[in-house]
Design a protein around this nucleic acid. Sequence first.
DNA 1: ATATTATCGCAACAAGGTCGCATTATGAAT
DNA 2: ATTCATAATGCGACCTTGTTGCGATAATAT
Lengths: 126, 126
Amino acid sequence: MKRRNTHSTAEIFEVLKSSGNALSHDMIQENIGSDIDRATIYRVLNRFCEDGKVHKVIGDDGKQYFAICHNCSGKNQVHSHNHIHFRCLHCGKVECLERDLAVPLPEGYVAKVHNLVISGFCNSCS
Amino acid sequence: MKRRNTHSTAEIFEVLKSSGNALSHDMIQENIGSDIDRATIYRVLNRFCEDGKVHKVIGDDGKQYFAICHNCSGKNQVHSHNHIHFRCLHCGKVECLERDLAVPLPEGYVAKVHNLVISGFCNSCS
DNA sequence: ATATTATCGCAACAAGGTCGCATTATGAAT
DNA sequence: ATTCATAATGCGACCTTGTTGCGATAATAT
């Protein structure tokens, strides 16, 4: 399936880019000018993930957050997104701490997905 | 509020203990003998968390997993549960890797909750 | 301009978890 | 042992997050 450049994809990507943080679906919907359907936003985001333009983290609030890949090593690679994310319990901001983390696993264990989130208070809120 | 010893709390704690791993609500419901309501299970587990007998992790599947605290340093302490959890994508097992992790945060950041999950394949499934 | 088909919007659905409220049962006091 | 206050339960309703089916729309190639 070839991807098409649509209004929605452009706007959603722009919101993610200008934010610089990891955003949940509803954050995106707020920050967006036009009115894009919830299902469409999820579909666009999941497409971004498949294409390796974006990575997804599940917060300790159980919600999905999406962020543009900067230092991530290519699409769908194992270990590609093994950095810690920080979620502020006060302002809600979720950011990627650009510090890769090598976690030694026991013998015979194979890592596929890293989902590392620390929450607390960020520098603006502590 | 004083806690009471009930049938449900005893059974749920026993299931967690004999399993040795972190269990989701439905895993507990399967492993349990009697028929305990979903809401009750969640309430019991949340009570255990408040009392520091158990800690909770959100998996990258968005589900809550509960595990008995072994090396965790007391109830509701910051940094008390800062170990990595491993979730097997094949057998579903979620286990605590008993290896504490000191993550250096940027200036001004305060950690409150650690939610560190790596998923992949465990030694039995890889 | 036309055809193909990826994408969208809407609605319905599913799963996970919480909450209100009437009922039950635990543990303490009598 | 009986009574009493109230913690805990079961049931149902509810909310939120996310996904899916399907007909309508619109992006790209010809």
